Computed example of a mutant assay.
Amino acid sequence: MEPLQEAHIAEPGLLVIDVAGADDAIVMAFQNAVARTWGRVLRRVVLLESAVPLLVVAVVAIGMGFLAAQLFVQAQFRYSIQAPGIQYYAIVLAGLVASLGVIASTVPLLRRITGPETARND
Rank of each mutant, 00 (worst) to 15 (best):
L96R: 03
M64F: 10
A51R: 06
I81V: 08
V45E: 13
A83L: 08
F66P: 04
N32T: 04
A83I: 10
A94T: 11
A61W: 09
Y89V: 14
P84W: 01
F66L: 06
I91T: 09
S99E: 05
L48V: 12
Q31E: 12
L55H: 09
A75N: 09
V45T: 13
V41C: 14
Q82R: 15
F77W: 15
V45L: 11
G85S: 06
A90V: 06
W38M: 14
L67D: 13
V59Y: 12
L96S: 04
V41F: 01
G39I: 00
A61S: 08
Q70A: 10
S80D: 10
A35I: 00
Q87H: 10
A51Y: 07
V102H: 00
T106A: 15
A83P: 03
A104H: 04
V59K: 14
A61F: 08
L54M: 06
L96D: 04
L67W: 03
A33N: 06
V34A: 03
V97Q: 01
L54F: 05
Q76I: 12
I103G: 00
Y89N: 07
L67R: 14
L48Y: 05
V107Y: 01
V46F: 14
V56Y: 14
I91K: 09
Y88H: 15
T37L: 07
L48W: 07
A51L: 05
I103P: 00
N32G: 10
V46Q: 05
A98W: 06
Q76N: 08
V56C: 03
I86Y: 13
R78Q: 10
A75K: 15
Q87N: 12
A61V: 13
L93N: 08
V97A: 13
L67M: 11
S99T: 07
V97K: 04
I81G: 04
L54S: 00
L47M: 08
I103Q: 00
S105K: 07
A98I: 03
M64D: 13
L48E: 15
I103S: 00
G39Y: 00
A58R: 03
L93H: 06
L54K: 05
R40L: 01
V97W: 01
Y89A: 09
V45D: 12
I86F: 06
L42C: 08
